[in-house]
Amino acid sequence: MLRPKLKPVLAYLVLIVPSSLIILGFLWLLITSFSTRVEGLQSLGWTLNNWRFLWESPFGPQYPSIWAVTLNTLVMSLIMTLIVVVVSSLTGYALSRMKFPGRKGFLSLTLILHAFPSVTLLIPIYFVLLWIAKIPLIGRDVPLLGGFGYNTIGGVALVMVAFQLPFGIWIMKGFFDNISWDMERSALIDGASRFKVWWQIIMPNIKPGIAALSIFSFLTAWNAYLIPLTFTAGRAGKSAVLSLYLQNFISESVMTEWNAVAAVGLFQLVPVVLFFLFTQEALLNIYGGGKKGGV
């Protein structure tokens, strides 16, 4: 009787032991954010001082408040999500459903692109963004986004879109693979163009996929660090996002206030954890349906 029971117990151990490390870590984070100092998980003095960034700007009034930065982050994440979903589903549709020379090559290419390290491309992308900034209308001074050039929310979003595309395209392709061919044929015979088929017939039928990719992209964007850090001038500038706001506490002061960093980190984390809790069910649809050739 021991043997059959041993395996589940072992499995649970494998799950629970590493999980407890996460719990310990986040417990420490929580305690730290409300303490002056900690020793292990023991607070050496409770305080709310670390959270004062919520109601005052700790670096002076000329810097944007946490709420403005949060809004920036939200806008950037939403923009990035929107573009990723639209572009991925356009391309995923073509790769899944249309015949053209080089289709398989293009599909391989999208995966190979993921092998291009972001670090490699940071400097040249900087030049590209400077160049986009010179394009009238879309380059700069667009309301809310700032534009799509250097040091704008739109520009940062666009770069992140590019790095998210390989994943997005493969995920969306998987969903398109599972749509019945007869439905699409029927729409073509009814008189629709391929574009209308995509928009009016297929897209409404892969809502679970769109939702899943949106959630994943949003979470990725919210948390992005390196790209916003590189492509916005000044961590406290008007295009600052939360992960950069955090950076203020680390380098601008002589002594890094780690407890405040913990608090800002938690502030950034809490909304997306809640978001994830409510959307996990939808996110779990991300694998379109078990068919080969999908992701």
């Binding site: 356009l90 249309m98 692109l113 490699t120 040249p124 879109v161 590019a162 391929r194």
Partner: peptide, 25 residues
């Protein structure tokens, strides 16, 4: 041409943020 119309946004982004930078690097 229809397939390439669908691919064009990706082509543009890939060119801007992968190919041009790669050539420069």
């Amino acid at each position: 041409l229809a397939p390439y119309a669908f691919l064009s946004p990706t082509l543009i982004l890939v060119t801007l943020f992968f190919f041009i930078p790669l050539v420069m690097v």
